[in-house]
Design a protein around this nucleic acid. Structure first.
Lengths: 190, 190
DNA sequence: CGTTTACCATACGCATACGTACGGTGTATT
DNA sequence: AATACACCGTACGTATGCGTATGGTAAACG
């Protein structure tokens, strides 16, 4: 038969990429084997050749996402030497590029699954440590830097959650910029 | 047969209360009809006498929760006239009493379900409006009050999320108090 | 050119969870 | 006391989604 004109041959990486896209768009719960297979134009007979189980796909996808996330942070933010500028750039980064944070927001809503919880624990700890070091570099005492890092990270996580509530009035571009400026002014010293 | 010694006769309100407890403990996804029936010591034959569907139970439970939430806010916080004291009391309230916020945190993780999304939209808007009014009362300009309200609410939501990540080091009581003091000092003027 | 390998389709088994049908029992009502 | 009603148990039908078994096909390889 073969109705499809373009021959499709997938690798494990293709499945992981599709899974990540599906998570970002519809959440972890929507990550079903057969749905993903349809999305990729094949059937699940293909899937179970690449992965032994759905759980294996999820873990591989999370691992890939975590590595990419860490890489982005290192490349864009950690390279900035001046701590205040680094913090400002961090806030503006998460403000400008919404797309990479959709997956993070989706994973926040799936913490009941152990595999997700494990990754989010590591990622959150790493980000908060990064924030804490930056705040210490601008002269904050140990305890204060820790608290401010926690507050800043909570503000980030909470903001992502709020963007997921469609009933809330969406921010226009100017409002959004003004909000980010306000956050920076409030949470970044000087 | 009737192995149970105590006769159990339930009302719709009993089912709603049980559902709310189940949501707070294990999340919205864990709210299954037969599981809840076991928890209440009956079978699902009982459930479908009180409710036509699982969705109906969820909506009724959410409605009950929303009413209680609004009542608590009015009784404890809104009655405080001095705006700065009101804001401080608000932060300390959500800090001291963790239990009432478990349901809120659980609902945050179930935003993919339309019924949940609708309620969370209303509740979030109401809370942010309340924060904005309070900030305006302490003398903030309109735009700044709006931004600060958003930031404060995001910090609340994010903090709840972070408490759900068990891999993160838990805060001791003193650390927790110090953190709340830091948040108040940072987000409440003067 | 024949065979192995990599990838995929189809059909099936099975568990979970919703919802339905219907019969049963205790309590209230007349 | 007889009947109706409120509440519950049991058995069943059905949909979904995971995982398995097995056969098929195109491309790579000897």
């Amino acid at each position: 038969m073969s109705l499809r004109n373009e021959r499709i041959r997938l690798s494990a990486a293709d499945w992981e990429a599709g899974a990540l896209a599906m998570i970002a768009e519809q959440g972890v719960n929507a990550l079903a084997v057969e749905a993903l297979a349809r999305r990729l134009g094949v059937t699940k007979g293909s899937f179970y050749w690449h992965f032994p189980t759905r759980e294996a796909l999820l873990k591989a996808t999370l691992q890939r996402w975590e590595a990419g996330d860490e890489h982005d942070l290192d490349a864009r933010i950690a390279s900035i030497t001046e701590p205040r500028a680094r913090l400002r750039e961090l806030f503006q980064w998460v403000a400008r590029e919404v797309q990479p944070h959709r997956a993070y927001a989706a994973l926040l809503q799936a913490m009941d699954q152990p595999a997700v919880m494990e990754v989010m624990g590591r990622v959150s700890q790493r980000r908060m440590d990064f924030l804490e070091r930056s705040y210490r570099e601008v002269g904050m005492a140990e305890a204060e830097a820790l608290h401010r890092a926690r507050l800043a990270y909570a503000a980030y996580v909470g903001f992502l959650q709020l963007t997921l509530i469609p009933d809330l009035p969406r921010l226009s571009h100017e409002q959004f910029e003004a909000y980010v400026d306000h956050v920076i002014a409030t949470l970044v010293p000087d």
